[in-house]
Amino acid sequence: MRMKKRRKKLILLFCLCLALLGAGCGTGPTIKSHTITQIDGREIQVPVDPRRIAAVYGPAYEAMVVLGAEDRVVVCADVQFENFPWAKKIFKRIGKLPYLVNVHSSVSTESLLQYQPDLVFTFARPNELRQLETAKVAAVPGLTSQSLDDVKAQLMVYAQALGGDAVHAAQRYADYFDKKRAMVKAVTDAIPREERPRVYYAGVDLLTTYGKYSDICELIEDAGGIAVSGGLAAGNRTQINFEQLAAWNPDYIFVDHGGMNDRNTVEQVLKATYQTKRYQAIHAVANRQVYLSPSGVFYWDMGLQKILLLLYMAKILYPQEFASLNMAQEVQEFYRDFYHYDLTDEEAERILNRQDP
């Protein structure tokens, strides 16, 4: 009897070893992966339930907070907090994490791999993506949205890469986005084109703008304006000359992205605009209708606060039609629901006025 029992135990042990070997025992743990599809259609293999995340691409850290994955971030980028004091105040960990430098120029793969990420949200630069592929580290490149719907779609791609509750968080953001956008368009869609103001959106400096391959032109149109750069065959932050701006002669100018890459701040851009003689003939300058886009934890024209930019612009272009729209309350609602932070009335006003905490 004892011999039979012993034989059964040996057979069970042998079967268990075979099963472990079949699962990869002896060659290191097998990481399960699945396929997600980026907004441009490319398919990307990512690990199931990634636990060590590198949020390197500019808007990626903000997305991790909204998706409930901030605690999984092991390294970020200097630009995500150096220009945004509100990020260090509102995001729980960003000021305590190690970070990579000069990411707008290039990301050092060697430095990045020191933090042993199993998933990297990074820039869409082919050489860097190839290096991560060679190192067998999954990477999701961030893409510039060409339509407002891409803002929601890109967040959902990130959510699908993270898995779990992140997908529900992304859908909640999408529902909010659609609700606020519909609220604005219910008013602006009824405004005839001949009654709409001409709007120019500047980034980095006054002669850098956004063309038809950017979602900013669509945002301007939704807010009730005419995007003067809508026929420009370009994407984000494209250089033009003064003659082009003068020919467009916008009624309103909005400025964002000041201070990027050690350039002038938006406040300096605004001051120079009003003081430069040749700009005085432009309607927006002559009528003191040049506005600075708020930023808060990140640029409003790049990250998930873009829906707030739509509300903000509509309120400026049509103050009477949107008299009941309280931007301070809208900012407070957004920060509470998506960043999990309760702004005071004063803090909300400071964000709207581009003031530090």
Rank of each mutant, 00 (worst) to 15 (best):
Y252M: 02
V120I: 06
A227W: 00
I39P: 15
V167Y: 00
F81W: 03
T37H: 05
D71L: 08
L308D: 07
R181K: 13
A272G: 05
Q114F: 10
P29I: 08
Q244N: 15
I44D: 10
G28Y: 04
A169W: 00
V151C: 07
A169C: 14
Q320W: 03
K96H: 13
K212V: 01
G303P: 00
F242M: 15
Q171A: 12
Y210Q: 09
V266L: 04
I90Y: 07
A223P: 00
D356P: 06
L219N: 00
G24E: 07
G296Q: 01
I316E: 05
K88R: 14
L317N: 01
T37F: 06
E349Q: 15
C25Y: 10
I240Q: 06
G203Q: 09
G24P: 11
Q45C: 14
Q280H: 13
Y252Q: 03
L352T: 07
H283P: 02
V140L: 01
R130A: 14
K5N: 13
P197I: 01
K180C: 10
R336P: 04
Q114W: 03
R350W: 02
M1Y: 14
G22S: 13
T209L: 00
Q146H: 08
Y213A: 13
K212R: 06
D118F: 04
V137H: 03
K179P: 10
A139M: 05
N236R: 12
H34V: 09
R288W: 00
Y115H: 11
R198L: 05
G68A: 08
T344I: 09
T27E: 13
G41Q: 07
A227N: 09
S295I: 07
D356K: 00
R198N: 04
R278E: 10
L317E: 02
V331C: 05
A348H: 02
N249D: 15
P141H: 02
E194K: 14
T238R: 05
V187C: 09
R193C: 02
L129C: 12
L143Q: 03
D215K: 03
M64I: 07
G258P: 13
N83T: 10
G58P: 15
A227H: 02
G58W: 11
I36L: 13
K96E: 13
Q146K: 11
A60V: 06
D337E: 15
A233N: 13
T209A: 01
S147Q: 09
A323G: 04
L129D: 12
V137T: 08
E82D: 15
E333G: 04
A153P: 15
A54L: 07
